[in-house]
Design a protein around this nucleic acid. Structure first.
Length: 175
DNA sequence: CCCTGATTCGC
DNA sequence: GCGAATCAGG
């Protein structure tokens, strides 16, 4: 691999998503989908930390607290506006998982024709201003996605190690 | 069971 | 510096 370091684009995307409040796993999926990379959430969190985005509270010894000696620090001169980061785990939506191959034939239903029970897995969203269409397959009850897409959003590689299992090939004696 | 965040450790 | 492995919590 040529770049052992993250391209600025990736880091920028990472920052954007991070500041946007997406979870690490989602950030990873977003970046992977957009750039065709394969970052894991570990990679994302690791990069984010090294990048300086993650601010960890330093738990110092209970006795020696670096806090100001006297109670001088009571009045805050000014409130640093609200550059606020909403608590990371406070939000969840807005995270559309990009698409990749899933082995299904999307009906590519336009938004206007999308039924309530149709799978809302977006197609064409990562391209350009092209109309976004959707998978349109019957989605599972309680989910916005059909079975294959719902699974795709969770774990891509899970199916890899899924070879041995319930399905056992039966050898049929050929005449 | 699934998911997530966060740290550690080897490369 | 990178990311997988690992730990820990929901």
């Amino acid at each position: 691999m040529e770049p052992a370091h993250w391209p600025s684009e990736h880091s920028d995307a990472l920052r954007d998503y991070f500041l946007k409040g997406l979870s690490y796993a989602e950030i990873g999926r977003q970046i992977n989908a957009r750039f065709g990379t394969a970052y894991t959430r570990n990679a994302v969190v690791g990069r984010a930390k090294r990048l300086g985005l993650i601010v960890q509270l330093r738990m110092t010894s209970p006795s020696i607290v670096p806090v100001l000696p006297s109670g001088a620090c009571l009045i805050l001169p000014h409130r640093p506006a609200l550059l606020n980061l909403p608590p990371k785990s406070a939000m969840k939506p807005a995270a559309q998982v990009k698409l990749r191959c899933v082995g299904v034939q999307p009906r590519l239903v336009p938004l206007v024709e999308l039924a309530a029970e149709d799978c809302r897995y977006p197609y064409g969203g990562d391209k350009d201003g092209e109309e976004i269409t959707f998978c349109g397959h019957p989605s599972e009850p309680g989910s916005s996605y059909c079975t294959p897409h719902a699974r795709l959003t969770r774990r891509a590689g899970a199916g890899s190690a899924r070879v041995s299992g319930p399905v056992v090939l039966r050898l049929v004696s050929a005449a």
